[in-house]
Computed example of a mutant assay.
Amino acid sequence: MARPKDNGEYRAALRGLQIELVKLQRHLIRHEEKVLIVLEGRDGAGKDSTIKAITEHLSPRETRVMALGKPSDRERSQWYFQRYVPHLPSGGEIVLFNRSWYNRAGVERVMGFCSKQDCEDFLDAVPIFEHLLVRSGIRFFKYYLDIDKDEQKQRLQSRRDDPLKQWKISPIDNAALKHWKDYSRARDTMLTRTSSALAPWTIVRANHKPTARLNLIRDLLGRLDYADKAKPKQIAPDRSVVFPFDLDALHDGRLSA
Rank of each mutant, 00 (worst) to 15 (best):
A125D: 15
L58S: 06
P200N: 11
D150V: 12
R254N: 04
I138N: 04
K168V: 13
R213P: 01
L132S: 14
S100F: 00
K231R: 13
D162M: 09
Q154E: 15
K165M: 15
K5N: 14
I94Q: 02
D43R: 03
L216Y: 07
S184I: 10
D248V: 09
R187P: 05
A176Q: 10
K233V: 15
W201D: 14
M1F: 13
G92A: 05
A227N: 13
L36T: 00
R135P: 03
W180R: 01
Y144L: 13
L220M: 15
D173W: 08
L224V: 13
K52M: 07
A236H: 11
D6L: 13
L250E: 03
I203S: 06
F113I: 07
L255H: 14
G106R: 08
E9F: 10
I37N: 03
K23Q: 14
H27R: 05
K142S: 12
R104T: 01
V38A: 03
D73Y: 04
L21Y: 15
A212D: 05
V110Q: 00
R218L: 05
D73I: 03
P163L: 10
P244S: 11
K47W: 01
R193V: 04
D121I: 04
K34W: 01
F141L: 06
M111A: 11
P163E: 12
R160P: 07
S72E: 02
L58E: 01
V38Q: 04
F129G: 09
H27G: 11
V95H: 00
I169S: 10
L96C: 00
D219E: 15
T192P: 05
S77D: 15
S195W: 04
A230E: 09
A186Q: 08
E108G: 00
L216P: 00
Q152D: 11
D148F: 12
P86F: 05
R26C: 10
Y183G: 02
E108A: 02
N215S: 08
Q166V: 14
D118R: 04
R223M: 13
G112F: 06
V22R: 09
I54K: 02
G8C: 09
P232G: 13
V126G: 06
K181D: 15
C114V: 13
S77K: 15
L96D: 01
I203A: 10
K142T: 10
P4D: 04
A212K: 04
R223L: 07
E32P: 04
P237D: 09
Y226H: 14
R3K: 14
S240T: 12
A45M: 00
R26L: 13
I172Y: 07
G44A: 10
V134Q: 08
R11L: 14
K229D: 03
N174Y: 15
D238R: 08
G253M: 06
F122M: 09
S158R: 12
L247C: 06
A13L: 09
L224R: 05
V110E: 05
P232L: 13
H57S: 13
F141K: 02
I235Q: 01
R26M: 11
R139D: 14
D248N: 14
M66F: 06
Y143E: 06
A67C: 06
W201P: 10
R83L: 00
